[in-house]
Nucleic acid binder design. Structure first.
Ligand SMILES: [Mn+2]
Ligand SMILES: [Mn+2]
Ligand SMILES: [Zn+2]
Ligand SMILES: [Zn+2]
Lengths: 143, 143
DNA sequence: TTGATATTTAGAATGATTCCAATTCTTATG
DNA sequence: CATAAGAATTGGAATCATTCTAAATATCAA
């Protein structure tokens, strides 16, 4: 859970590269996201950040995550109108939500699938993003 | 916008078949959804229902739409955390949201695409539903 | 027709998120 | 290193889609 100096520097690099000032809170929130890639909600990120020495406010967790999304460091994941979840996986991927455990898994998207998906759009439709969400059950704790 | 007797009877049939009592309000809300398949929000369905003689409450619009969803007559469509939209198209289809106009279009899903999508899931993942949402721009008013 | 059950309704409550204004940081500059 | 301007953090208030409540109405099988 604690970052070594190398990881911390790399993380600061990510923030700077994204045009964000590397504050103590941002470093911590980002490290929380990278530590367990289980698509936590804001509330969950906040809980996991309580270990931070002087604490962190819920508003700041919202602000950090928002700035990460704007700068492309993380993506939001929504299921219906449940609290938004956050995902640091930048590869093209879909999500699968196990409706029994509530866990959300990453599903890698092969390029051929993306191509086939774009091919179903009528003439003149220019997609900028696509979101693919499964939900169902899973027999094993894969991925 | 007004239903003829034949349509009304068919609509009552749908409700009864779904195990729902065919009330004046449900008939009206469903007819509103079927009249313009443009994925209206609750608020929009409510506006379009003001023509109903004795009016209809917002709570009832929520209730009607919820009962339609539960009985499988309509589907919900969510984009981020915007107000939920409602769709009476029961064929397998994706959605495309034009970010300039806000309009949401239906995109038919060929069976081969569904099959390919299921094939990307790891062993043991049993999907019960899949949601596919594009957003971007569109050059023409197709669909 | 009538009673049991379901639906409708206005308004209150909820809860995730956003907004606000005051305080504290960060960092460029001298 | 000191300073100042802009950026980030913060607690609490505000927003707003949605859900809940409990009282009034409507539906329908018997
Ligand atoms: Mn977007
Ligand atoms: Mn579902
Ligand atoms: Zn993910
Ligand atoms: Zn649709």
């Amino acid at each position: 859970m604690r970052l070594n100096t190398t990881d911390l520097e790399r993380l600061k690099g990510s923030l700077k590269q994204a045009g964000l000032k590397p504050t103590r809170q941002r470093e911590h929130v980002l490290s929380v996201l990278l530590a367990r890639r289980d698509h936590p909600t804001v509330e969950e990120v906040w809980q996991r950040s309580r270990t931070l020495s002087r604490g962190i406010s819920l508003a700041t967790v919202y602000n950090c995550l928002e700035s990460f999304v704007e700068s492309g460091l993380v993506k939001q994941v929504n299921y219906e109108r449940e609290p938004t979840r956050y995902c640091p996986n930048l590869r093209p991927h879909a999500h699968f939500k196990d409706q029994e455990t509530g866990r959300v898994y990453d599903i890698d998207l092969p390029n051929e699938v993306l191509i086939q998906l774009n091919s179903i759009l009528p003439e003149g439709f220019r997609p900028e993003a696509i979101e693919i969400s499964f939900h169902g059950r899973t027999k094993q704790q894969a991925s």
